[in-house]
Write a protein that binds this DNA or RNA. Structure first.
Lengths: 212, 212
DNA sequence: CCTACCGATCGGTAGG
DNA sequence: CCTACCGATCGGTAGG
């Protein structure tokens, strides 16, 4: 059925090559800055060659978002899952996130911060994909908070969604200010605020795993 | 000296007309989406007419940022200055900010959220103008916190910059999530978190002016 | 010599 | 993946 002539494999390799570059460009200049002509020139391919791999500019943007989700999952969500559920995992998740932003896994900082701001007030499939990515991330944080509550490590009256909102706000803003002003002090502020907030929400006798 | 032939006045009026539209477009689609041809078409002017008013696309972007700063100052900073310095003014500043975002003074939400994300990782005069606007806003929040501390309404050991960072994070994220998901619950979360944070930082016996 | 525009067009590039 | 093109639009400027 499938002719093994190397063309499909070569296409997949080129596709990965293109996506490695598009997540970088999009994190710095936005998803609208992804143009087929520019990618072709930079990667020494033809415009129509790049175009054929994705079919449209919108598909290129959607594939770039999927690639960013993949990288983000591998760098933040997967390692945090190695820590047992509870306050320790929640704290680890926040630390991994700050390290993901600070180490510039994407050269323009958190990929989704830029994508959210770029497409938040528009409509269409790209907007929807960005909304889904943010919703999944918020839901993941809420689930991690809920695990800690179920494990008895948070006060009984803890508002899970409220705590998750505050953690996301501190993380996201650390990234935003750090990239904008090209300095790292915002990460320290976020870390201090998160530790303080978790300390306040922790049940009696539950210490934070690694206080800063 | 100045010939009163109405042409200068007409130019100023057209300039204000253009800027009223550019802050709207930029808040939804970004500062790069400002094109002379599009503005000319929408406002039924000639391209060269629009062009002559600003001299270059970059000047159009810079003028748009200045106009947004003017509107922001009028809507948020100026009304807050009517409340006497202290915790009351700080709380009022946060409330005015949330109302500025929620009422969509700019149709795409806070103008500077989008501009920051768009130009944070680039270089040049537009980047610099955005950095300056954010720095001015952070400095204003810090000054307002410092006033409250000086007035004896905050605990002596309060870290002014840390508190300002946390307030900015909660405000900014309320705007971001509200615009992205087109719903208002994030404003309530920010309000709850800010009230709680200010309650924790308040000196003994100092009540919050309007608890939610 | 100034301004605020006009219709037309410059060299290049966009998505397809 | 290629060359060869399209309709349109980009930022910017010409003379009047």
């Amino acid at each position: 059925m499938t002719r093994v002539d190397g063309r499909v494999e070569r296409g997949n390799r080129t596709r990965r090559l293109v996506l490695r570059r598009t997540v970088e460009i999009a994190s710095v200049e936005g998803l609208e800055a992804l143009t087929v002509g520019r990618l072709a020139a930079e990667l020494e391919l033809s415009k129509s060659g790049v175009f054929a791999l994705f079919g449209s500019k919108q598909e290129l943007q959607l594939a770039t978002i999927r690639e960013a989700v993949r990288i983000y999952t591998e760098r933040v969500l997967r390692p945090a899952a190695e820590t047992p559920p509870g306050l320790g995992r929640l704290w680890r998740l926040c630390e991994l996130w700050l390290e993901y932003s600070r180490s510039r896994v994407f050269p323009g900082g958190c990929f989704f911060y830029g994508a959210m701001a770029e497409f938040d007030a528009r409509t269409g499939p790209v907007h929807d994909a960005v909304v889904r990515a943010q919703r999944d991330w918020s839901a993941h944080v809420e689930r991690t908070v809920e695990e800690a509550r179920t494990a008895g490590e948070l006060r009984a009256g803890t508002d899970v969604a409220q705590l998750a909102f505050e953690l996301v706000a501190l993380l996201e803003t650390a990234n935003a200010l750090s990239v904008l002003h090209d300095e790292e002090s915002a990460y320290g502020r976020a870390r201090v605020a998160i530790a303080e907030r978790l300390r306040g929400a922790a049940a009696e006798g539950v210490p934070l795993p690694q206080s800063p």
